[in-house]
Amino acid sequence: MIAMIEDVMILFFNLLIFAQMITLKDQTRQKMFKLAAGCTVFFTAYGIAVYVFQFPMVLSSLLTMSLPSLVLFWLFSAFRDARFFLSFALADTLSLITASFSKYLSLFFPQGEIFFLGLTLLLFIALLVFANPYFQLLKTLMRQVEGGWTSMAVTAMLIYFVLGFIAAYPTPIAQRREYVPVFMAVCLLTFAFYLVVLHSLQKTQKIVEQNIQLQQEQKIYHIAYTDALTGLGNRAAYLERINQLERLRKNGISICCIELDMNGLKQVNDTLGHAAGDRALREIASALKTVFLCRQSDSVFRVGGDEFCVLLSDVDKAEATACLDQLKNQLKQSSQTLGFSLAAAAGVAWVQAEESIEATMIRADDQMYKNKRGEQHVSETEIETITS
């Protein structure tokens, strides 16, 4: 009778550990009732197999508990991949190790069945209390991390089957007392391995949390430094880039400042609507990205309603002129796409010695407005540049 109670208790804690480790798809009262009913059926089938038909306990546990509970919890699990099998193998392994320590100690210290029944109960309670934070950690990581679980699941399954094989083949290990110390040493090694894994998971959680925080910071940075309409850098990003380039000037790199202003935006808004004006701004931004963002060192910004700024580093006048010619061609193509003409005026200036980049931008801006005032002589799809 005591042996039966101990077996049922071990199986109960095994299912309890498994239930703590897996993440259910939902926890409605109806689903929980079905889980409880299924577990009750498994207990009944195990009792009949062992105590009526006298089947070996390991085989009965596999056929009436392990495999059926695997199917049952699979149906209710939120994860039907390697994460589920990792939880299953880990729960069964921990249960097997805990029960084995209690059973095999009784072979060498015969203080009575009641004593070791209590010892088994205490060991499982201690396991639940000690491991529960790690179970919750594991469930949290499973929700946060999609990949990387397959190798862990395969390893956990192999460990579980190796321990079961050693315990049952060729005869139950209780009948081979000389091998009990070896089996318990393997159990200790396995337990130590899982402790290392759990501590690694704890570190992984910190990394995951740091990555989540970094992603949030990147989103905030993107919102703070990106123009929502065009996807270009905004004025805040422009000012920060100027500060970066000022620090790089000591390396002797050349810096080219280009100011651009879209012509006729008000006319487009008044005649075709603001949606058409927004499309025009996005097309100009797209053309600027195509021409100037092929190098990581170059930067493009929308600094006003229809004003754009380009900062080029380590370029000569021929390269800058070629880029502006390419931009002109891009705007011609964009004009055909939009169905109306795009026009922009540009001013170009190079940073001189003992001159700040801001001062150079002012010179480029002045040149751009001189160009803009003389635009009536220029085709609408052309960019006129004045270089200083």
Results as ranks from 00 to 15, higher is better:
Thr190Tyr: 12
Thr190Met: 10
Phe191Tyr: 13
Phe191Lys: 00
Phe191Met: 06
Ala192Asn: 15
Phe193Cys: 03
Phe193Lys: 01
Tyr194Ser: 01
Tyr194Gly: 04
Tyr194Leu: 02
Val196Ile: 14
Val197Cys: 04
Val197Phe: 00
Val197Trp: 00
Leu198Asn: 12
Leu198Ala: 08
Ser200Tyr: 06
Leu201Thr: 02
Leu201Trp: 03
Leu201Gly: 01
Leu201Lys: 01
Gln202Leu: 05
Lys203Glu: 11
Lys203Phe: 14
Lys203Thr: 09
Lys203Ser: 12
Thr204Ala: 00
Gln205His: 06
Gln205Cys: 09
Gln205Thr: 08
Lys206Ile: 14
Lys206Val: 15
Lys206Thr: 10
Lys206Glu: 02
Lys206Met: 14
Lys206Gln: 04
Ile207Asn: 09
Val208Glu: 05
Val208Cys: 10
Asn211Cys: 12
Asn211Trp: 08
Asn211Gly: 06
Leu214Cys: 09
Gln215Glu: 09
Gln215Gly: 11
Glu217Ala: 02
Lys219Asn: 08
Lys219Phe: 11
Lys219Thr: 03
His222Ala: 08
His222Lys: 06
His222Phe: 07
Ala224Val: 02
Tyr225Gly: 02
Asp227Met: 04
Ala228His: 11
Ala228Lys: 08
Leu229Arg: 12
Leu229Lys: 12
Thr230Phe: 09
Gly231Thr: 14
Gly231Ile: 13
Gly231His: 08
Leu232Phe: 06
Leu232Val: 07
Leu232Gln: 05
Gly233Tyr: 00
Gly233Leu: 04
Asn234Pro: 09
Asn234Trp: 06
Arg235Thr: 13
Arg235Asn: 06
Ala237His: 03
Tyr238Pro: 00
Tyr238Ile: 14
Leu239Asp: 11
Glu240Asn: 12
Glu240Val: 12
Arg241His: 11
Ile242Met: 13
Ile242Arg: 03
Ile242Ser: 06
Ile242His: 06
Asn243Asp: 15
Asn243Trp: 13
Asn243Cys: 14
Asn243Tyr: 11
Gln244Trp: 14
Leu245Tyr: 13
Leu245Asp: 08
Glu246Gln: 14
Glu246His: 14
Arg247Phe: 03
Arg247Ile: 05
Arg247Lys: 15
Leu248Ala: 15
Leu248Val: 15
Arg249Asn: 10
Arg249Trp: 13
Arg249Tyr: 11
Lys250Ala: 15
Lys250Glu: 15
Ser254Pro: 08
Ile255Lys: 11
Cys257His: 01
Cys257Met: 11
Cys257Asp: 04
Ile258His: 03
Ile258Gly: 01
Glu259Ser: 15
Leu260Ala: 03
Leu260Asp: 01
Asp261Leu: 06
Asp261Glu: 12
Asp261Ile: 03
Asp261Trp: 00
Met262Gln: 09
Met262Lys: 03
Met262Leu: 14
Met262Gly: 03
Met262Trp: 04
Asn263Phe: 04
Gly264Gln: 01
